[in-house]
């Protein structure tokens, strides 16, 4: 199919983009890497009157390492993250998950901000951001504000983004020296959206402390599993009693099936992913 007609603007600065969005907010959509929006346009699922293309805004495409945080511009592409020494050194969770995000052709275009804004429940990045305790920095013509990743993803393709707001960047705290991470996803083909996946962080391994366990591909949004975290807190990653309790706690989660994998299978696979991610905690 072919996209319907739309107006197209390609601003060169964030302020110009914000102004365009402000002036056309009801009818405009932002184009980041285009890996979801372009197919949606061609399938006529998305029919904006105006497309504001963010791809020429260089100020949104930088990675800055501060003392306590790494700040990643919303238009930073996955390929750029993969190539970044800073990401490699400071953000091992993101780094280990990147090769699992689709295929390199998609990673060449797809952006961290685009993935966050779309909030596809099967995508890896929203879960990684929650597990990393990231903050989403939002701007509009009037103000700027910070929303924690925990609060940002509100539902199926729904976020805390308000009309007129653009994701400027995403701040991820640098993990402490004792922190450990785990990532595991179950896919039928390499690069597919996961049937079930989990991203884990903990501030220390033995015993596990201050965990974040976030499932993706199993519900209407990335799902932080507090009961699961509690079951594992103060235990070790190979404590089979605690793991059994953690898996048992998944029964309380509001999971959702898809056309290939029903909700029972999702629950089972979430448990398998959790177990395997814990085995590989590092």
């Amino acid at each position: 199919m072919k996209a319907p007609d739309f107006n197209y603007q390609r601003p060169a600065s964030l302020s110009a983009a914000l102004q365009l969005l402000h002036d056309n907010d009801q009818d405009a959509q932002l184009l980041a890497g285009g890996q979801s929006l372009m197919p949606m346009l061609h399938l006529r699922i998305a029919q904006p009157d105006m497309l504001i293309d963010l791809n020429r805004i260089d100020e949104l495409a930088t990675i800055d390492a501060g003392d306590a945080h790494i700040e990643i511009g919303s238009m930073v592409r996955y390929a750029q993250l993969e190539a970044s020494e800073q990401i490699k050194t400071c953000l091992p969770l993101i780094c280990s998950a990147l090769p699992h995000i689709a295929h390199s052709a998609i990673r060449n275009r797809g952006t961290i901000g685009g993935s966050a804004a779309l909030a596809d429940p099967a995508a890896e990045m929203p879960a990684l951001l929650i597990a990393s305790n990231a903050s989403i920095n939002l701007v509009s013509t009037k103000a700027s504000r910070v929303v924690s990743a925990d609060d940002f993803f509100t539902g199926l393709y729904e976020t805390a983004l308000q009309p007129g707001e653009i994701i400027k960047s995403i701040s991820i705290p640098k993990p402490g020296n004792n922190s450990v991470f785990g990532f595991y996803e179950i896919t039928r083909r390499h690069g597919d959206y996961a049937m079930a996946g989990v991203a884990i962080s903990a501030q220390q391994q033995s015993p596990l402390h201050k965990m974040r366990v976030v499932f993706f591909g199993v519900a209407e949004k990335p799902l932080r599993a507090h009961n699961c975290e509690q079951a594992l807190e103060n235990g070790t990653a190979n404590d089979s009693g605690a793991i059994d309790l953690a898996i048992k706690s998944l029964e309380q989660l509001p999971l959702m099936g898809d056309q290939h994998t029903g909700v029972d299978s999702k629950r089972h696979l979430a448990g398998v992913a959790l177990k395997r991610a814990l085995q590989e905690l590092h």
Binding site: T261, D264, S265, H268
Partner: peptide, 14 residues
């Protein structure tokens, strides 16, 4: 033979 069908065959999921 999808993963779900195999899990069902194994009795892992209903």
């Amino acid at each position: 033979a999808t993963p779900e069908r195999i899990l069902q065959a194994l009795g892992e999921v209903p």
